[in-house]
């Protein structure tokens, strides 16, 4: 098929639709919310600092949003994503995929991961971030990106600079002590609608 540069020659996309309330829980049986273990029972670990992020997703009334599907996507400790254009990158970490998926029954989640790094070789380096995709009943897919409070790279991150200061703060994952093994814990609250609504981003029009 010939590639067209004119928007008018493009096919019309199928409409995205809601997840509905009955996404089969068993389809997530092989998904993991621990990105520090590429599969269970192996000695190899990804490079970087292991962290635990506790979060929740709330609706317009401040209630937890039950029955939603979450997908997380992040670069490794060196700021490199695992994708086709980085296959041979010297900073790619063989023991880190950066992709996690989770169906949460009650709207809470816990992600165990490596703190994402900064790719300093980029023309415009990105602050450490985690992309979050939310699928829910009542709404089509929505997407946002979460950052770590107090990171120096936040001051120059192009996505953070594209929104105002108040909205920026709503994307910040905040420190929340340590667990019994000394692993740093963080917390974040995502508000889908209403007061203090989390900013979401348009990956169809941009």
């Amino acid at each position: 098929m010939t590639q067209s540069s004119g928007k008018s020659n493009r096919l019309i996309a199928t409409n995205e639709d809601t997840l509905g309330p009955y996404y089969p829980i068993s389809l997530c049986d092989n998904d993991s919310m621990d990105l520090t273990e590429i599969r269970s029972g192996i000695i190899n670990k990804p490079l970087g600092e292991k962290i635990i992020i506790n979060g929740c997703i709330k609706d317009i009334n401040g209630n937890l949003a039950n029955g939603i599907l979450l997908e997380f996507w992040q670069p490794n400790a060196a700021g490199i994503y695992r994708r086709p254009d980085t296959e041979t990158h010297h900073k790619l970490d063989p023991w880190f995929t950066g992709y996690a998926r989770h169906r949460t029954k009650d709207g809470n989640f816990t992600l165990t991961t490596i703190k994402p790094g900064v790719d300093v070789d980029l023309e415009t380096p990105r602050a450490p971030n985690i992309t979050l995709t939310i699928f829910s009943d009542g709404i089509m897919r929505i997407v946002t990106q979460l950052f770590f409070e107090g990171e120096k790279a936040n001051d120059t991150d192009p996505l953070l600079l594209s929104i105002n200061e108040e909205l920026r703060d709503r994307l910040m994952i905040k420190p929340d002590g340590e667990d019994e093994n000394g692993i740093k814990k963080y917390k974040i609250e995502i508000i889908m609608a209403g007061d203090n609504e989390t900013p979401f981003f348009d990956d169809l029009l941009s």
Partner: peptide, 25 residues
């Protein structure tokens, strides 16, 4: 549920130099 969970604000456009990070693989 749509009323409870639909963002009231417009989605924000993604700047070009941040766009790649929004293509999970």
């Amino acid at each position: 549920t749509s009323n409870e969970r639909t963002p009231r604000n417009r989605l924000h456009l993604i700047p070009d130099n941040a766009r790649g990070s929004f293509a999970p693989y």
